[in-house]
Amino acid sequence: MIVEIKSLIKRYKDYIAVDNVDISIKEGEIFGLLGPNGAGKTTTINAILGLTNIDSGDIKIFGRNMRDGESEIKKSIGIVPQEVSIFKDLTAEENIAFFGKLYGLRGKMLKDSIDEALNFTGLLGNKKEFPKAFSGGMKRRLNIACAIVHKPKLIIMDEPTVGIDPQSRNHILHSVQKLNEMGSTIIYTSHYMEEIEEICTDIMIMDHGRIIAHGNCDELKELISSEETIDVEISSVNYTIVDNIKSISGVRDCTLNDKKLKVISDKKSKNLSRIIETISNTDSEILSLNVEKPTLEGVFLTLTGRTLRD
């Protein structure tokens, strides 16, 4: 395990920010930490990095406790903070150089690493510019470049796509996957379930300081539902349709609301074709059909009663 956290507790006076959290992350994973704002994700990250004291628990990075060799451990970690944390009075190149030196790079290795980081994040042509001239997406990319210049084994990305345009967001997500392919383990926190679904191999859902679910995407979706919902829009109302559909094996419920049918069916029954056939056998035509798949947002809603954006 590259990261092992056992029984982590962190309090701020009377408020428990992280409540008895256990996390194990294998080398080579893209580990997703999903949860709404205030769930305890950033506090957990800060505890891993040794930036905040913990009240109890054990944290091991690369098999070692932070107390035994903090400097060596930190050299192999890169952090992409939630807020863009760069020096506005240094150029892009100078920013990356500063963090490269901070992590122990010198001379030619530093120079080559800077160019690689700039190239990776698509900022090679802007290296002499100051961040004030950058768009939000470019600043986020510089934020990432500063984190990866020293080619860390473990990269922690704390909500790296907040507030940026979709194009930059996609670029970042692809970059994350590329970094993982190049050998880095990634811890990726977000409250955007689509991102977590897209790139993460192992996911933990956090809320109010606790882990409420853990698994890969499919496992988590299985947690809430063995059902699927089929929405069908029909051309004309026929009240016998509802009873006919309800009689199909595996259908748990069927409702009609102003020419819109909602069919809840057991996923394993694979009865979609029968449902379509039943509708076709009436006078009504199918105008549109949609099969709703469970999402992580749905998982969160089921587990907590709230949406991720509440």
């Binding site: 990095l49 040794g50 930036l51 903090e70 400097s71 060596e72 930190k74 050299k75 970690i77 952090i79 903070p81 807020e83 863009v84 944390s85 760069i86 020096f87 506005k88 963090f99 901070l102 992590y103 122990g104 500063c146």
Partner: peptide, 13 residues
């Protein structure tokens, strides 16, 4: 204010 303070201490400093 810029956050670089915390970022620096995430490094071996």
């Amino acid at each position: 204010k810029s956050g670089t303070y915390y970022r620096m201490f995430a490094a071996p400093l």
